[in-house]
Design a protein around this nucleic acid. Structure first.
Length: 402
DNA sequence: AGCGAAATAT
DNA sequence: AATATTTCGC
């Protein structure tokens, strides 16, 4: 007597996180007081579920997994209990119990406010998501207390004291704003099975510091993952049902087609974009994929770049500045301000900002060739110098026919 | 697969 | 109204 197996003590520790539910059960089987251990873990799961409930829209699958785990363990608990008394078969799965408790708390699908509040509440204590706002974008009146957390940005030369690129606070219609999370997956079809799905659930939790290049706020589920080029599309993401879940469960509830969270093009991000653009020879020459690769921003997708590029082109390409009339309204004062951070960004951009090649081949490739396009110099030039102000391209209502 | 433009959505 | 996402044709 006296000597306690290490496993046993492990089980009871609140910090203990098994690799998988199966793992946990294995531990459990060797525990002295299974019920207590089980219950403890169960309550932790439920606690987590409560937290994540605020994000049920963004993390439907995590919800699912958690629910799955909980119900499984509850079943186990029942089993344990019955085993002590009488050998009755357990066919009932106390699935709804948890749900009831939550529903009583008026969780509705429309309770956005409620959710948001929830998010903030536990966000402030659990710093899993970091959306500090410090750039010029940040104009939200809501003081956030959830800053802290060092920047995960490990950019090459970027020495800005700010956060990565997302200075985007979702003040407007932005309800969801949360950080990466799921970046595992890849081609995980070799996963054990069954309870393996639950493993994923716990995996997510301790998943937080995996970024390598540039971490970008990832709206929905993306793949991408770490150091390599985060290729592939994935834009649709969320809805797809992972192969790691029981068919019975996946059909059950969640799984709604969620629109992707709007990617916020923070000035930093945009600067990078423009930088890449320039290297590629202008907005007209560059293609989304190339740009994305040059940008080396983790989690950024082709589609997003493409979209941004489209907008960029629209704003720059419009009004052929060199055509004749109406030369440069734009350059005048409308493209004002070099901006605060230009200072800081300049440092990174010129020197070590890009790992590739510091030398920027200016768009000089066009040395008076092919005026066919009728354009003047590449528009990037103009926009490049600015932070992010491609607006105010008032075109004269006089002509401008195409 | 990827790009560009247009249709949508927020 | 601006900007991001999705759709569609090539």
């Amino acid at each position: 007597m006296g000597s306690v197996l290490p496993e046993l003590s492990l089980d009871l520790r609140p910090s203990f996180v098994p690799k998988t539910i199966t793992d946990f059960l294995r531990h459990l089987s060797s525990a002295t007081d299974r019920l207590a251990t089980l219950h403890d873990f169960l309550s932790r799961l439920e606690d987590e579920l409560r937290k994540i409930h605020a994000f049920k829209r963004e993390l439907p699958l995590s919800m699912l997994l958690l629910n799955d785990a909980i119900s499984l363990l509850k079943t186990e608990s029942q089993k344990c209990r019955l085993r002590d008394s009488s050998p009755v078969l357990e066919e009932f799965i106390p699935l709804k119990k948890e749900r009831d408790r939550n529903e009583g708390n008026n969780y509705n699908d429309n309770d956005m406010d409620n959710e948001c509040r929830d998010k903030k509440n536990w966000l402030s204590s659990v710093q899993l998501w970091n959306n500090s706002t410090t750039n010029n974008y940040a104009s939200d009146r809501k003081h956030q207390q959830l800053h802290t957390l060092e920047n995960k940005k490990i950019e090459e030369g970027q020495s800005v004291g700010e956060d990565p690129f997302q200075s985007c606070s979702n003040r407007n219609g932005g309800r969801r704003a949360f950080m990466p999370f799921s970046r595992y997956s890849s081609s995980s079809s070799s996963v054990p099975v069954a309870t393996a799905g639950l493993a994923a659930a716990t995996k997510e939790e301790k998943e937080e510091s995996v970024m390598n290049r540039l971490s970008l706020q990832t709206p929905s589920v993306k793949e991408g993952c770490g150091s390599r080029g985060s290729r592939s599309s994935s834009s649709r993401a969320v809805s797809s049902s992972p192969p790691t879940v029981h068919p019975s469960l996946r059909a059950s509830s969640l799984q709604q087609t969620a629109r992707k969270q709007r990617r916020c093009w923070s000035p930093e991000l945009h600067r990078r974009f423009v930088n890449a653009l320039q290297k590629l020879g202008g907005s007209q020459a560059a293609t989304p994929k190339q740009i994305r690769e040059l940008m080396q921003v983790d989690g950024l997708t082709n589609d997003e770049v493409k979209s941004h590029l489209q907008k960029y082109r629209l704003h720059t390409r419009r009004v052929p500045a060199g055509s004749g009339n109406q030369p440069v309204v734009v350059l005048g004062g409308l493209w004002m301000s070099q901006d605060q951070y230009n200072d800081s960004s300049k440092v990174s951009s010129s020197g070590s900002g890009s790992p590739q090649s510091p030398l920027h081949l200016t768009t000089g490739s066009r040395g008076g060739t092919s005026p066919t396009e009728g354009d003047s110099m590449e528009d990037d030039e103009d926009a490049r110098s600015e932070s992010y102000s491609w607006k105010s391209h008032m075109q004269k209502p006089g002509k401008v026919d195409v």
